[in-house]
């Protein structure tokens, strides 16, 4: 049985979803029920004192792993503060570290992310850092105690696909930790592409939440993730990269 283990928890489903940007958050429950998604990200915000919406947790099935992000954090210190608050809210000890001080492209700050990872891993959090794909940063996150790494496929919310494929491929080859492609995945085929490369999982939010039919799109992603994973496990057959050489390079050994 092909299982993904993160922070001691066995996961059967390799599609993680985000709960942001849904026009109707009540769809999240249906999506989880239909696809078997087990990990759902959430964010922590100040409550609206003048009466606000219902709480997002009302829509996320209780057996899901909640993965609070530290969105809004501009440095390690703020990320650590948000992570501690999230844990105090009593929803487990997983955290997706997200440190962004660039408001134009929303790219993560790897240096601050590494610092925050080190502190939170030390405090017993299951830390999943969102990162810019970079081998040295990935190795540093590994040493800092991350439970997985989450390189971006393209800038957050752009739906541009796996633009970072070459480097993500290197991270998958070189890192011991599970590599979860987060951000930028816009279509199921791109999720499958990431899984075929050997990604441990993909995290999708915008592409599902803003689809014309989010529930149907979530289903499509779930199937694509499974197909990609199976293709990876099945080990693709030989592609003939080279035309058969007219004069073999090793023919001299037989003469």
């Amino acid at each position: 049985m092909d299982k993904l283990i993160i922070g001691g928890k066995e996961l059967k489903n390799r599609l993680f979803i985000g709960s942001g940007k849904f026009a109707d958050e009540s769809l999240i429950g249906d999506i989880v029920a239909q696809t078997g998604v087990e990990v759902v990200t959430v964010a922590l915000r100040r409550v609206n004192l003048n009466g606000g919406k219902e709480n997002i947790l009302n829509y996320i099935p209780k057996d899901c792993v909640l993965l609070p992000n530290t969105s809004g954090a501009r440095n390690a210190e703020e990320a650590v503060r948000i992570a501690r608050l999230a844990r105090a809210a009593g929803c487990g000890n997983w955290v997706k570290i997200e440190v962004i001080s660039d408001n134009k492209y929303l790219l993560p700050d790897n240096n601050e992310t590494i610092k925050a990872t080190r502190i939170l891993a030390e405090e017993g959090f299951v830390v999943l850092p969102y990162m810019h794909p970079d081998l040295y940063a990935a190795k540093e996150l590994e040493r800092a105690g991350a439970a997985a790494i989450m390189p971006l496929g393209a800038p957050i919310g752009t739906n541009r696909g796996l633009k970072t494929k070459e480097i993500v491929r290197i991270l998958i080859e070189e890192c011991e930790l599970p590599v979860i492609v987060d951000a930028g995945i816009g279509k199921p085929s791109e999720a499958a592409e990431a899984m075929e490369l050997g990604a441990a999982a993909v995290l999708v939010n915008t592409a599902i939440a803003t689809a014309g039919n989010p529930a149907m799109m979530a289903n499509a992603f779930s199937q694509a993730v499974q197909a990609g994973r199976q293709a990876f496990l099945a080990q693709p057959g030989e592609t003939t990269e080279f035309a058969r050489a007219s004069s073999p390079l090793t023919g001299f050994l037989r003469s």
């Binding site: 990269e241 080279f242 050489a245 073999p248 390079l249 090793t250 050994l253």
Partner: peptide, 11 residues
Amino acid sequence: QLEAMARKAHQ
């Protein structure tokens, strides 16, 4: 598979 290895090594 020496010939296949040779082609890849050459490339």
